[in-house]
Design a protein around this nucleic acid. Sequence first.
DNA 1: CTAACAGTGGAACGGATCGTTCCGCTCTGC
DNA 2: GCAGAGCGGAACGATCCGTTCCACTGTTAG
Lengths: 214, 214
Amino acid sequence: MSTTSGKTLGGRRAQAARNDEVILEAARAVFLDDPKAPIAAVAERAGVGISALYRRYAGKEDLLRQLCHDGLRRYVAEAETALDEPDDWAAFTNFLTRVVDADVHSLTVHLAGTFTPTEEMGRDAMRAGELATALVDRAHASGRLRPDAVVHDLGLLLEACAAVRVPDPERTRQLRRRQLAVLLAGLSSVPDADPLPGPPPAAGEFDWRWRRRE
Amino acid sequence: MSTTSGKTLGGRRAQAARNDEVILEAARAVFLDDPKAPIAAVAERAGVGISALYRRYAGKEDLLRQLCHDGLRRYVAEAETALDEPDDWAAFTNFLTRVVDADVHSLTVHLAGTFTPTEEMGRDAMRAGELATALVDRAHASGRLRPDAVVHDLGLLLEACAAVRVPDPERTRQLRRRQLAVLLAGLSSVPDADPLPGPPPAAGEFDWRWRRRE
DNA sequence: CTAACAGTGGAACGGATCGTTCCGCTCTGC
DNA sequence: GCAGAGCGGAACGATCCGTTCCACTGTTAG
């Protein structure tokens, strides 16, 4: 193998570099399945020892934080991509489909509270909120989103989809798409529908998860 | 206080009888909030010692089983009540509203797997399935339920509502009603709607929770 | 060729949690 | 007044889990 500082590395270095990916992937899979899985489960799933984990992350909290932040960035990225779509309603539905498929909700909200967030995460979360608002505004403009739906109804919607879980991941994805279809149908404007009940979900009502667990 | 074997008891006996209720209520509240809360939390919430608990139940599993069975019976009772309603669609929606309000789903599905079920529970679960099917059939007959919705879509729906959680219980109820409204709107038949995607949820797909945790 | 070392596996440790038991106390019912 | 039902809560033992530590291995610089 090449030993110089070229692109491809052989031996230990290469294995180490590959482990970076393998470990992150394993962590995603494990914590997606169970937000409070032990760290040893991640190592086992990755097929490495525990040391390989602690060499890369200061502790469990560090790993969780990174994972959550990745999820948040994914959310923002999907929103930005969706905003490029010319059709207002399609932008809205495509965004939700992508986010549900990627299980971003489990990576962000369900992991919150298990670590102290960074300031950058706060900024990203704010940006995420702005982008979501923009998507909802455009969906309203298209006339296909029922007028009494608000941004924070997305929180309910994503929670509902993330709650669908069966052992098989692919089947989970299918059932979530079905759930999403029902919810989107329910959020579509129809001539004379009863208005949605109760005070609509408000800004701070879902932040409680982000506060440090007691 | 009367000491004879009349209806009202005074002193210790009365306190003990009252504790029966208090403890069950506390257990419901605690395990509804967190399915794997420690038993001590129940005792604390009830304002009694741990002994008072173990005097009534052989162990945690016993308590959980009873709680879950109660939830199942409640589900059946609500379904039977709903079936008395003449209007087919109203029977369907009223049933769901009652079940969601009572948080029956958290009492049954979310507690499953933490104990070995009894045969009677199996029978009740089967009866619950039959009643739910009857309600869905009538809803279909009314023409207001979209034709491609199936019984087991109720599982998704209830899961979605149970997933809504905020610290305040009353607010939780409001938000769940809103979620339910969206879902019911989505399940309502409209002239030319896209069919729901994917193979519909099937019979055995939600039973995995009832299998003993590995 | 070899000494230093980055990278690793996994045993071991210490703390936390939780179900259950047990003992001593109180107050009732006879 | 006494036997005992009912109870509070400390104590115990079993897990579980995050983190540390050490011995080992293959690589790489010189």
